[in-house]
Structures are given as structure tokens and as C-alpha cells.
């Protein structure tokens, strides 16, 4: 297969974290995050400890902290919600900087923000240090059903092919004076997506035939 080995978040390296078996990393991530989620909001020291553990892991992996920090933008919508929470929450009100906010809301917002941030950073660390092939192998070791793992492997394999196909189509639309964001041009956009579906489905059929001709019997080797 001609696609690259990494994916968009992968950071090439040879640290112990990179070399660790993927199934250990997956279990560690899940255990870590369950612990974080189960921690009460007001155990501030515990969150500091969790952050310290995460930073140690990132430093060991030699992935630059800035690399992780820059990719934390996925969290932005939740920051908005967390900022909003003290104002809409119930409970006794207190004054912070002359603004009346709900005290339990403020604590919950802080805890929620801490947990969501730890979650994003921990997931980013896994993504930055694990190649998709290893991740799939790890999931299989953890007894994820074969079918799910193979569907996932096809998705990862063709992700860039299909998204690039869409990008080319959208570039084509733009160069013909069409704005895919505007509802006025939705019919055009929809035809593009329809064509993309047909192309993806037919690609799936071709891939299946190619696999059959190489001896595929319903199981991946």
C-alpha cells in the first residue's frame, strides 16, 4: 500500500514511549482518564499530580510541548462552555471581580476544564507517539472484534485518499465561483458529496475484488 506510515498527529521518534507496546498505551490511557474523570472537582492537588504525570510522559517521549499545545485547539468549544458555566449554574452566588457567579458552577467549570484538558493532552500524546498500524495491532491484542479493526484499518488507509478527493472537488467548485459554505450553493455541494459517496463505494467494491483475487477469505491475515 502506497500511503505514508504516519498520520497527521504522529510525531516521529524513538523514545521509550514510542517503542512501548500500543496495547499498554491504550490501557494506560483509559485507566488514567477513568481515574481523572472519577476525581471530585475540588481535589485541586490531584489534578496538579495528573498534569505532572502527563508532562513527564510527554518529556520522556521527546515530543515538543509546543507541538502538543498547538494541537489543543480541538478543545476550544468546551472552553467556551466552561466559561459560560459559572453564570448559568445554580447554587449560592459569590462575587468574583465584581461579577456575581454561582460558586458550585465555578468549581464545576474549573474541574471540567481540568478534566477535558487532561483528556485532550493525554489523547494527543497517544496519537503523537503511536503509528496507526501499531494502534490497530494493539486494539486487536485487546480483543477488539476483528471486523471493527479491519473496518478501522480501511478507514485509516483511505482517509487521505478520500479527503483529498473531496478537497480537489471543492477546489474545483471554488475555481468556478462557487462557495461551498453558502447555503445558496448547497445543491452543488450536495451533488459533490453524492459523487464522493459513489466514488467511495465503488472504490470499496474495487478494493474488495482486488482482495478476493489475492485470496481474501473474509479474514485479514
Amino acid at each position: 500500500m502506497g500511503a505514508g506510515h504516519g498520520h497527521r498527529l504522529f510525531f516521529h521518534g524513538h523514545s521509550p514511549i514510542h517503542r512501548a507496546p500500543a496495547h499498554w498505551k491504550l490501557v494506560a490511557l483509559l485507566a488514567f482518564m477513568l481515574t481523572v474523570v472519577a476525581t471530585p472537582h475540588h481535589w485541586y492537588a490531584a489534578f496538579g499530580g495528573y498534569a505532572l504525570v502527563l508532562v513527564t510522559v510527554i518529556l520522556t517521549s521527546r515530543v515538543p510541548l509546543l507541538y502538543i499545545a498547538r494541537r489543543m485547539v480541538v478543545e476550544v468549544p468546551f472552553v467556551f462552555f466552561a466559561v459560560l458555566m459559572p453564570f448559568i449554574a445554580t447554587g449560592p452566588r459569590i462575587d468574583v471581580l465584581g461579577v456575581s457567579v454561582s460558586e458550585p458552577g465555578l468549581v464545576a467549570a474549573g474541574g471540567f476544564l481540568a478534566k477535558a484538558t487532561l483528556g485532550v493532552v493525554a489523547s494527543l500524546t497517544l496519537a503523537a507517539t503511536t503509528e496507526p498500524v501499531d494502534l490497530l495491532r494493539g486494539l486487536r491484542t485487546l480483543r477488539m472484534p476483528d471486523q471493527i479493526v479491519s473496518i478501522m484499518s480501511f478507514m485509516i488507509r483511505y482517509l487521505d485518499v478520500v479527503t483529498d478527493e473531496l478537497r480537489r472537488m471543492v477546489t474545483g467548485m471554488r475555481s468556478r465561483g462557487c462557495d461551498p459554505r453558502s447555503p445558496r450553493h448547497w445543491p452543488m455541494l450536495a451533488r459533490t458529496l453524492g459523487a464522493l459517496f459513489i466514488r467511495s463505494y465503488e472504490r470499496g467494491e474495487r478494493v474488495h475484488l482486488a482482495m478476493l483475487s489475492r485470496g481474501y477469505d473474509g479474514r485479514m491475515p
Binding site: 479491519s150 480501511f154 483511505y158 478527493e165 448547497w186 464522493l196 463505494y201 474488495h208
Partner: peptide, 24 residues
Amino acid sequence: DDRTAPLAGLVATFVFAAQMINFP
């Protein structure tokens, strides 16, 4: 039927690509 893995994989990829379309 036995086409599940490749076809579901490509439909999943299509869904992912379609989710990249934003609307105001």
C-alpha cells in the same frame, strides 16, 4: 455480506469527509 470490511471502511471514510463540510 463478505464485503463488510472494505465497504464499511470506505463508507466510514466518506462520513468522515462529509463531516468536514461546515455550514453557518
